[in-house]
């Protein structure tokens, strides 16, 4: 369903992605793990073009999106076309990025109404359903600054789900949360995966990855080092680098 082929990305002299290829099937949950700077977040952001790959292609359901390669030069698609593709992917950010001037409810209906042209009443109904699903039905009229971190992230998840995406991208969704608030967000994500959502998650939560992921991908220095089921990657890593990374995680 989502395919990235030979992605390269540099920030100036720093090469962050050195030829990453990745394929995610419908309803699959894939976790990207690895040390800081390994390129996990950059890869994720390439999938909805928040970052521009220097080389490689991205495909959604077999269709090449965002740009074409014509005679070795990258020709980007039009802005509206790219925006339309982005509506099919939901993203949840480490810093939540809720819109502070809007209530929780308005945060959630904003894109469905103004991007998808949904009827406001229908969008509100859908938003209330989603809020109930993430356990925040009573917070519809609260503002983000009145919520805890866990509540903000759950709101962000509802906001992304309101667009009916075919897949959800999570960029370290719990890294900015106080430890006691992590659980409530992981619960929502766990339920989401049980409902069959395709998910690509950059995370440091190894236990979560173990329990929910069908596949774990370990990245280091811009390359995929190892890619396998959680049991294999965590219990019986093949590569030395994977082994030392897992060891530092377990020893925390």
């Amino acid at each position: 369903m989502i395919e990235a082929i030979d992605i390269h990305k540099s920030f100036g002299p720093l090469e962050v992605l050195r030829g990453i290829s990745l394929k995610v099937d419908p309803s699959e949950v894939v976790c990207l793990i690895g040390p800081s700077g390994s390129g996990k977040s950059t890869l994720l952001r390439c999938l909805n073009l928040l970052e521009q790959p220097d080389k490689g292609t991205i495909k959604l359901n077999g269709e090449q999106v965002y740009f074409d390669w014509i005679e070795g030069r990258k020709v980007p698609h039009g802005a509206k076309r790219i925006a339309r593709v982005r509506t099919r992917l939901g993203m949840v950010f480490q810093e939540f990025n809720l819109f502070p001037h809007l209530t929780v409810l308005k945060n959630i209906i904003e894109a469905p109404v103004h991007v998808l042209g949904m009827e406001r009443a229908a969008a509100i109904e859908k938003a209330m359903t989603l809020l109930a699903r993430v356990g925040l039905a009573d917070k519809a009229n609260a503002y983000p600054d009145q919520l805890s971190g866990g509540q903000r992230q759950r709101t962000a998840i509802a906001r992304a789900l309101a667009m009916d995406p075919i897949a959800m991208l999570f960029d370290e969704p719990t890294s900015a949360l106080d430890p006691e608030l992590v659980h409530e967000v992981l619960e929502v994500m766990r339920q989401l995966s049980a409902d069959g959502m395709t998910m690509i998650i950059v995370t440091h939560e190894m236990n979560f990855a173990r329990q929910v992921a069908r596949r774990v991908i370990f990245m280091d220095e811009g390359r995929i080092v190892e890619e396998d089921t959680p049991e294999r990657v965590f219990e019986h890593p093949r590569e030395a680098r994977t082994r030392s990374f897992i060891k530092t995680i377990v020893n925390r």
Binding site: N48, L50, A83, R86
Partner: peptide, 15 residues
Amino acid sequence: GQHHAAAALGMTSLL
């Protein structure tokens, strides 16, 4: 992050 969130939701720059 506000720009990113808006873009991720499929908003054009103008919107």
